[in-house]
Computed example of a mutant assay.
Amino acid sequence: MTKYVLWGNYCDDVLEKRAPYRQAHLDGLAKQKASGVLLTIGPTKDLTKVFGLYDAEDEATVRQLIESDPYWQNAVWTEYDVKEWIQAL
């Protein structure tokens, strides 16, 4: 498996906009974590960025997971980038 880094942006009104989708978002992340594909994910303290680490077969798998998330589908996350990551230590 290959590791991937996610960096993304949140919308300006994230606290209000995420509320209706938060539980579905968290439930989906819990399933990804349980399956081993999601290592960690979370927002920056100022709620402007999201950071995640994935362990997946390929980048397309990671992108599919991100794009099927309620936060992406409802514009809570406004853009994202995925990069293959080399874990040095």
Rank of each mutant, 00 (worst) to 15 (best):
T44P: 11
A75Y: 10
A19D: 13
Y4H: 06
E84Q: 15
R63E: 14
Y21E: 07
P43I: 11
K83W: 14
R63N: 09
W7C: 09
R22L: 15
T2S: 13
A30W: 00
V76E: 06
A56Y: 02
L6K: 01
W7H: 10
T40E: 07
D58L: 02
N74W: 12
V14M: 11
Q32F: 02
P43D: 08
L6P: 10
Y80I: 10
T48L: 11
I41P: 11
D55E: 15
K3I: 11
E16N: 14
L26G: 02
L53C: 05
W7I: 15
A75L: 12
R18D: 11
Y4K: 05
V5H: 03
L6W: 04
R18V: 09
K45F: 13
D13N: 15
I41Y: 05
G28D: 04
R18I: 14
K49P: 02
A56F: 05
H25I: 01
G42C: 07
S35V: 00
Y21S: 04
T44L: 13
V5F: 10
V82D: 06
I66H: 04
V37Q: 02
D46S: 03
L38V: 00
W77K: 01
A88I: 11
L26K: 00
I41C: 08
Y21N: 06
R22A: 09
G28Y: 01
L53H: 03
Q64K: 08
W77M: 07
N9I: 01
D81I: 10
E67D: 06
D69E: 10
D12E: 15
L89W: 13
Q32T: 00
K33W: 01
I86V: 15
T61A: 05
G52D: 06
T48W: 04
V82Q: 05
T48K: 15
W72R: 03
N74P: 10
Q23G: 00
